[in-house]
Amino acid sequence: MQPEMDDLDRAVINRLQAGFPVCDRPFASVAEGIGLSEDELIARVAGLLERGILTRFGPLYNADRMGGAFTLAALSVAAPDVNRVTAILDALPEVAHNYEREHPWNLWFVLATDSPDGIGKTIARIEAETGHPVLNLPKEREYFVELKLGA
């Protein structure tokens, strides 16, 4: 199931995880460093995005610095009830990610709201609608956030 990648694709992925310049012709300046033409690099990036090997190409924003409020939260939901609770979370625009995990706290999701009191309101609503208490684990300190995977 792993998509085909050649060495040049890997070089492009590794190079583009390290950053992209802000200048008139950024593709041209990156392309030169890996022995491609500007057009070839643009075509490679387009191909990697189309094939789903890259999920995104562009600025990565730090949501914390944009004036909103965020938290990581979890629910402990018995298997027969997971679909009902998932549907409730799906319908809430404040729920940005939701992962099922192997643990007594089995549903883990990120809440994003415009203001800090929006987090409390959303949690109260989830507790009321699901009937389950929410484990609310807001970030107290960030030590590192960056994912660079060798391709």
Partner: peptide, 17 residues
């Protein structure tokens, strides 16, 4: 200022294995 962490590519980690 850190509003943008970086500009670049985000790989699908499943696709990279």
């Amino acid at each position: 200022s850190g509003v943008i962490r970086r500009i670049g590519a985000v790989p699908n980690h499943y696709a990279l294995g």
